[in-house]
Lab assay of single mutants.
Amino acid sequence: EPLWIRPDAPSRCTWQLGRPASESPHHHTAPAKSPKILPDILKKIGDTPMVRINKIGKKFGLKCELLAKCEFFNAGGSVKDRISLRMIEDAERDGTLKPGDTIIEPTSGNTGIGLALAAAVRGYRCIIVMPEKMSSEKVDVLRALGAEIVRTPTNARFDSPESHVGVAWRLKNEIPNSHILDQYRNASNPLAHYDTTADEILQQCDGKLDMLVASVGTGGTITGIARKLKEKCPGCRIIGVDPEGSILAEPEELNQTEQTTYEVEGIGYDFIPTVLDRTVVDKWFKSNDEEAFTFARMLIAQEGLLCGGSAGSTVAVAVKAAQELQEGQRCVVILPDSVRNYMTKFLSDRWMLQKGFLKEEDLTEKKPWWWHLRVQELGLSAPLTVLPTITCGHTIEILREKGFDQAPVVDEAGVILGMVTLGNMLSSLLAGKVQPSDQVGKVIYKQFKQIRLTDTLGRLSHILEMDHFALVVHEQIQYHSTGKSSQRQMVFGVVTAIDLLNFVAAQERDQK
């Protein structure tokens, strides 16, 4: 057995438009009618409502009807409940999964919650491996369901041993009777949507819809739904939504950006999952974080739909894509998950301010006199920076000697690579993860907040409520011999709460 199987392995699926269902090699399930009293909570997966979006479509000038398939009504709160249950049931049916076995899954959280929910009911041990950027709410729900959680670096490539995929496979090879159901490759993922989600949409719309818009992560949702719609409703256009920084969209030119990270969760990847059939997507749109969270908040405030950030991405694209539809036509959007997962993220004004998705003037509360002053007023001194090749031991000596707790790590040209902190280095040394002679590049981390000289002290204040420091950066445009230009970030300084307090105190003292 291989040590790991690539999540982007070539698909062996034989589905073709027009091929009889009787030739399918898979076990198919028909939607079942729910009894009045459910035998367990797993029976509350599927049969989610279709809700008309009344205000947002009109606000953006849509002539067509805009409908939302509300997947956050599933038992675990997301569309991923469907595939989690289906993968477990299919693994039980073919004898792969037996009582007492362990389920391991690399996930952005929602599939993990679905699997942990099913594992709690069915009696399996469950280990979820997820990147650090995923919300604390997801972690809390997983723990409450009895799952064990392993976190991995957000910026690790999918084929790196440190990625959530790599760590999951390492655990599988170490733990007896453990299984990775593997949402990236498992046919049960798109089949769950082909058999149930798509049929529900067709039934709820009486077979009449002209466009379907869905955000894409593993691709199982859009693949399964689109294949069924292509068979039953061939005139329906399928629109895929991919965040900026991901590479799922086609044509490839759409993916060209210097951005590699994004805040919206559960969609987009740096590889093409095996289950994603991009041939059934008629057109791709890219979405960005700001519009995703703005539209998610709009869905909550104006439509009462308590959905997550990827739902915002989907609707932001839908109001663009559906401009081509006329009166009497219908566009369906998939709202994948609930706001429950993001209470401390985009639902929080403070978080939105820190990330730059909300401006101070958007909030009406009274601010102190210094709130709208610029960061450049602080008069920061030149920063202490270190090269990635310097040793951890030497870096600790320098920081202690100069009285700093942290320093930016830059390359020879001064471009920011990340940050090192005294606390992080000492804990890594004590844990045996690094040696004093190791290069400081081994303990770089990139989960820090950046701020510009033109940003306000109010925004800085919000950042420092949650973080010990902020890195002050400025952009530099560099022209190359080819005539092309590129933008790079340079370090201007490091600012802490002490710097802000000293500035405010000094100004008030001078005024007296």
Rank of each mutant, 00 (worst) to 15 (best):
I238C: 05
I238L: 04
G240D: 03
G240A: 13
G240P: 00
V241R: 00
D242R: 02
P243V: 07
E244N: 10
E244G: 07
I247V: 15
I247R: 08
I247C: 05
L248G: 00
A249W: 01
P251L: 07
P251Y: 02
L254E: 03
L254D: 06
N255H: 03
N255K: 02
E258S: 11
V264H: 00
I267T: 06
I267M: 06
Y269H: 08
F271M: 05
P273Y: 00
T274Y: 00
V275Q: 00
V275D: 00
L276M: 08
L276Q: 01
L276S: 02
D277V: 02
R278D: 02
T279F: 10
V280H: 06
V281D: 03
D282C: 14
K283R: 07
K283V: 11
F285Y: 14
S287R: 03
S287I: 07
D289M: 01
D289E: 06
E290V: 14
E291I: 07
F295K: 12
A296G: 07
M298T: 13
I300R: 00
A301F: 15
E303C: 02
E303W: 04
L306H: 01
G308D: 01
G308F: 00
G309D: 01
G312Q: 01
V317W: 07
A322I: 05
E324D: 14
L325H: 00
Q326P: 11
Q326K: 14
Q326A: 11
R330T: 11
R330S: 12
R330D: 09
R330G: 03
C331G: 07
V332E: 01
V332S: 00
V332T: 03
V333G: 03
V333F: 12
L335R: 00
D337E: 03
D337R: 01
V339P: 05
R340N: 06
N341V: 01
M343P: 01
T344F: 02
F346G: 02
F346L: 09
W351S: 01
M352E: 02
L353Y: 14
K355A: 06
F357R: 05
L358T: 04
E360H: 06
E360V: 13
T364F: 13
K366Q: 12
K367L: 14
K367H: 05
P368Y: 13
P368I: 07
P368E: 10
W369T: 03
W369M: 12
W369S: 04
W370F: 14
W370T: 01
H372R: 03
L373W: 06
L373R: 08
Q376M: 11
L378V: 06
G379T: 12
G379N: 12
S381I: 13
P383F: 09
L384P: 03
L384M: 12
T385G: 11
L387M: 14
L387T: 14
T389W: 05
I390K: 06
I390V: 12
T391Y: 02
G393L: 14
H394Y: 15
E401P: 13
G403P: 09
D405T: 10
D405A: 14
A407W: 05
V409S: 06
V409Y: 09
V409P: 05
V410T: 14
D411R: 13
D411P: 15
G414S: 14
V415F: 15
I416R: 07
L417K: 03
L417S: 15
G418T: 08
G418D: 07
V420L: 15
T421F: 03
N424Y: 04
M425F: 12
M425K: 13
L426A: 12
S427F: 13
L429D: 12
L429S: 11
L429H: 13
A431C: 07
K433G: 08
K433Q: 14
Q435V: 14
Q439S: 09
G441Y: 14
G441Q: 12
I444S: 15
Y445G: 04
K446N: 15
F448P: 08
K449H: 03
D455L: 09
T456G: 14
T456L: 13
L457P: 03
G458P: 08
H462G: 15
H462K: 15
I463S: 09
E465P: 07
M466H: 12
D467K: 04
D467N: 13
A470C: 05
A470Q: 08
A470Y: 04
V472E: 14
V472L: 13
H474D: 13
H474A: 06
Q476K: 11
I477D: 08
Q478F: 13
H480R: 09
H480M: 09
T482Q: 06
G483Y: 13
S485H: 04
S485D: 12
Q487I: 13
Q487H: 13
Q489Y: 13
G493R: 09
G493F: 13
A497R: 13
L500F: 15
L500Q: 10
V504W: 10
A505Q: 09
E508G: 14
R509G: 14
R509V: 14
